[in-house]
Structures are given as C-alpha cells and as structure tokens.
Nucleic acid binder design. Structure first.
Lengths: 204, 204
DNA sequence: ATCCCGACTGTACTGCGGGTCCAGTTGACC
DNA sequence: GGTCAACTGGACCCGCAGTACAGTCGGGAT
C-alpha cells in the first residue's frame, strides 16, 4: 500500500497543489490539515509555522526543477553533442513540456514568493536567491561552452544571458497566469530559442 | 497648500508604496489608515473592501504605465523616424529608466496580483488581463511596422513577440526582487534589444 | 512484559486583521 | 438653518495563525 506516504510529504503535496493554484496566503492551514487528514496539532508538529512549510516546499520545488533541467539537457546531449544544438534541443523539450501540462504549468513558486516577500523570513528569501543564482551559473556555463565554438554576433553579458532563461520562463508564466492562456511560457521559450540561433549563427 | 491631496488619492499613494514594498497581503488596512492619518471608518467609506482598493490601485498603475510607454516611444520617435530604431531607442530609454530608480523598480503590480490570484475578484483579474492584452497589441503593432521595412531573419509569432516585451520586463523584475540586485530588468531589456537587432537586421 | 518515544489527536486560548454597523461630528455650500 | 458629503470612533463578529499542553497509540529496544 502506498498510502503509507509519510505525513510530512503528504502535507507538502497537498500544500504545494493548493499554493500553486491560489497562492500561499490564500491557502489556510485549516484546509491543508483537512486535505491531509490530520489534526492542526499534527501540522505544527511537523512545521513550526507557515514559514517552515514555505521553506520545505521551496526546497522540494527547487530540487525537482534542478533534476528536471539535469534530465532535459542530458537527453538533449544524447541527441546532439554540439553545445548549441544541445541547448536548442533542451529548450524545445522544455517548451513542449510546458505545453503538455494540461492545467497549464503549476507556475513557478519562485515568482510567487518573490512577490510576497515580507511574508517570509530570510531563510526562504535566501533559498529563492540561491536557486536563481544556481540557474544563472548552469546556463552561463552552457552559453560559454557555446561561445567557444560559435562567435556571438553581438557582445552579450553571459550572466545576464544565463538569467534570461529563468527570466523568460518566469515572465512567460506570469503572462500565462494573468491571461489565462496556456502556452505563453512555451512560446516565449521558443522565441528565446530563435534569439540564440541568431546570436550564435556563425561557427568560429 | 498641496496638503489638500484628497483622501482617496492619499490612501492610494500610501497603499501603493506599501504594496510594492511588501506585497498586498502583507499590507494591513491598519497601517494604511495610520499612514494616511484617517480612521478605519474613513478607509471603508472610500473602498468597500480591500478588493476595491486593489482594483483602484491597478487602474491607476496601468494608466501610469501606459502613459509612460506613450511618452517613451513618442520621444523615441522624435529622435528617429525608422520604426526599428524607434523601438530600439525606446527600449534603451526604458532600460535606463529602470536602472535609475534608486530603490530598484517598484516592481510590477501585475505579476504580484497574478500570483495571488484567488485573493482577488474577477474584476481585478480582468483588469490585469486587459492590461497585458493592451501591451500585446501595442507592441505587436510596432513590430508589424518594423516588419514592413525589415525582413525578419526567422519567422516569429508577432503576438508572442509583443508579449515578450511584457514578459522580459516582468521576468526581469522577478529576478531583481528575488536576487536583491538592481539592474536585472534593465539588462534583460538590453538583451531583448540585441535580439531585435539580430532579428530585423536586413532591410527589405 | 515493559517502557519509552515519536507521531500524532483534541481542545482551549491569544491576538491580529478584515469587515460590518452605526451613531455622531464637522465644514461647505445653498 | 438645513442638507449633504466626508469623515471619526467604538463596539462587535469572524477566520486564521500560532501557542500550549495533556493525552493516545503503536512499534522498537531492553
């Protein structure tokens, strides 16, 4: 029986679904404990307050996102060894993934927490920061690899270009949420992809 | 004496500053009335609830943003009549503007509300939607003008390209908030600008 | 068999913030 | 002198976060 998912994870699952759907503040502990079929006391046994819950959720989410990127670009690398084409394939896969999510993408917890800021303690904010810095590093590395093979047509700040991956995804998700459309994020990624094609058109 | 700013506007000013700094939920009516030096009753005389306040704030914000874009691209047009260069100059001005805001940019209320969604009623959400659709239309129009003079090197969805302006700004602001850096949004805009330069490099 | 402990349940209570109701004041204009 | 809009002030309800703690229950370790 997999009903033996431990309570802590069950809380996190319920909470994550609720938070992604309607935001952190709008999710009450009451409804989380109802969904997880535990008592309020049980909740506070696992998390000392809502902030601790937020931190745990963020950690899980960031780990999952990182694993996803690892997997995505590993698969892309198998398909093509050239760093540019690997990036292009990876972004295509990412765009497809975002499009295939039927409910629309859950929506990035990062942006959500970034805009509710003062609700959270320093620990949560720092997690957020570190996640984005991690992605910056990851993508900057990939772009530098590309730049060793392809001469960029225009000079670009590699840190900023690395950030642009996160930024385009985040921005796309904001649009998607606000517009109630379903493929804005994937379209934005595809546009970013053509940017890269134009930028790194010429082999050295 | 300009202290005769009417109470309603005073409430909106105080509220906007507080909301941009720490988010809507984290801003209590208590502190708004304290800041505006009125009573709680006075607040509810002007706004029937927090939702009404949100709607009024969004309306003001969107109007201001639209006026800003009008002004920015009008100035750009004066400097250069070519639609591409006008766009490029406008984006540069926008980037500079974002950079010059000492506290970092207030941060777009749009994203903030998009991610808190269920806190707000349909009216607020619709305002949000209409604003983004407005910007889509605005920028798509400008890009179509450009495409009449310049042959895009790659086929792009013009709606999506229009959205990309909003998306890049929103995304940049998310990064900026989360990272506590100050020029991410302007850097992202500058990168988007080089994208446009590459995309519309060849005159027809 | 017992005891201990981790994982809870249940209840009672505090405090804050949103929101309602309403009676009363104040100043401007007619 | 009366009317009205723009408030003040206070009493009150509710939901929700968070605290506190006493008690339960099942599964090892001894």
């Amino acid at each position: 029986m997999d009903q033996k998912v431990d309570t802590r994870s069950r809380i996190l699952n319920i909470a994550e679904a609720a938070v992604l759907e309607k935001g952190f503040e709008a999710t009450s502990i009451e409804e989380i404990v109802a969904g997880a079929e535990i008592s309020r006391g049980g909740f506070f046994y696992h998390f000392k307050d809502k902030n601790a819950l937020a931190r745990a959720m963020l950690e899980r989410y960031i780990d999952a996102e990182n694993a996803l990127y690892d997997d995505l670009f590993a698969r892309a690398r198998e398909l093509n060894d050239d760093p540019l084409h690997c990036m292009l394939i990876g972004l295509k896969l990412l765009a497809e993934m975002l499009e295939e999510m039927p409910t629309g993408h859950p929506g990035c917890v990062i942006a959500s927490t970034a805009y509710q800021d003062r609700l959270f303690d320093e620990g949560v904010r720092d997690l957020n920061r570190q996640a984005i810095l991690g992605w910056r590093k990851r993508f900057r590395g990939m772009f530098e690899e590309i730049a060793q093979v392809y001469e960029p047509r225009e000079a670009v700040n590699m840190d900023a270009l690395g950030d642009m991956v996160s930024g385009v995804v985040e921005g796309g998700l904001v649009l998607q949420r606000a517009l109630r459309e379903h493929n804005n994020a994937s379209e934005q990624i595809m546009l970013f992809r053509t940017y890269l094609k134009l930028l790194f058109a010429d082999k050295k």
